[in-house]
Design a protein around this nucleic acid. Structure first.
Lengths: 192, 192
DNA sequence: GCAATGATTGACAGTCACTGACACTTTCCG
DNA sequence: CGGAAAGTGTCAGTGACTGTCAATCATTGC
């Protein structure tokens, strides 16, 4: 069994436990026992208990980065970001996925510690996307983008995403609409 | 000695240790010993090791909230937020404060765990300011503000603040300018 | 087949953040 | 003065995580 497969197995079982008894109330020992491995081995597949939950976010982030790279160079950054977010919209369009993600979101929101870790990952993703956009801007002729402003723009786009997602927990159907509304409201003037 | 005074004393001594050996490398036992109290008593003044560093943020957040409340009701949210950020600008104008805050920022940035906790606090502040603005919008006649958009706007303003602060670590003098530039770039159309 | 080799694992001990319980002292107040 | 309240130290315990080591398992070259 590949490393990836084992991780998926652990994550699936762990999430069941988290849903049943809560994140903080579930010990790593319990997860390891439920999976059928030692605690020590659990930590060989996940660096921390947090990562079991946030691992999927990592992969989603990678997908966003790829999408962003694929956008045309002359497109406005704001639109490129909106298109990069599309995998999330698509993902939440599938009811099965949406239900799963809602459960995960609930787990994350219920633990301030885990929620903070989640924000940390989001920030890391913003940094990486900002780097990408900055580099793309440099490849574009006659445009000296302000790095600070660019980072703020990326942060603004994520603020829209975050606001729409928070809302989607309550009204699970309006995510796409909310995202479009927020991103229309905050659309910056051309960065160049 | 008042509770507040003891907390300040602990924070001061702890920060020295953090600067000297790093946050993760400094144990609570060491801090308690340096202050001259038991580990148990340390936790009677701070709920966690994180809080020693992030406590000042809490007080700053309260100040922002007060400032925001004091803005005129008919002012655009974006401008109210910019004015609420003023205490930070003023704080960073004083070289002594700036140096101290830069040291704290460095401690926070050096520990992903602490940095995540920092982001968590910022998010909490955003929620509270959003609540304030939402309530203020309700008091204003003829204006049905979209809560999702409003939260995104607050998030956008904080994204500007964050981008400017990250930049200020490198160029310590341009904070006010950076903040104005980013907030000009992301200024949303009127929320109402 | 088989032996050398490298990866995977479990068992164990240890560190560190944090908590609860209890006893002791100091301070405050009637 | 006496007794409640508040602050503190000690101790024991939990839970996340890490280092170490020996055993096992799979792979590869012969």
């Amino acid at each position: 069994m590949s490393r990836r497969a084992v991780q998926s197995r652990i994550a699936r079982i762990a999430e069941e436990l988290f849903v049943a008894k809560g994140f903080e109330e579930t010990t790593v020992d319990e997860i390891a026992a439920a999976v059928g491995m030692s605690q020590r081995s659990f930590f060989r597949y996940f660096a921390s208990k947090d990562e079991v939950v946030l691992d999927s976010l990592e992969r989603l982030g990678l997908e966003l980065a790829v999408r962003l790279e694929a956008r045309p160079l002359d497109e406005a950054e704001w639109d490129s970001l909106r298109h990069a977010f599309e995998p999330i919209v698509e993902r939440l369009a599938d009811p099965a996925m949406r239900e799963h993600d809602a459960a995960v979101q609930k787990i994350v929101n219920a633990s301030p510690r885990l929620f903070a870790a989640y924000l940390g990952r989001l920030d890391g993703l913003q940094r990486s996307l900002s780097e990408t956009l900055l580099e793309r801007a440099a490849r574009r002729p006659g445009c000296a983008a302000d790095p600070v402003v660019l980072r703020a723009v990326v942060g603004g786009a994520f603020a829209c995403l975050h606001a729409a997602m928070v809302d989607a927990v309550a009204r699970p159907d309006g995510f796409g609409r909310s995202l479009d509304r927020t991103m229309a409201a905050l659309r910056p003037a051309a960065v160049c």
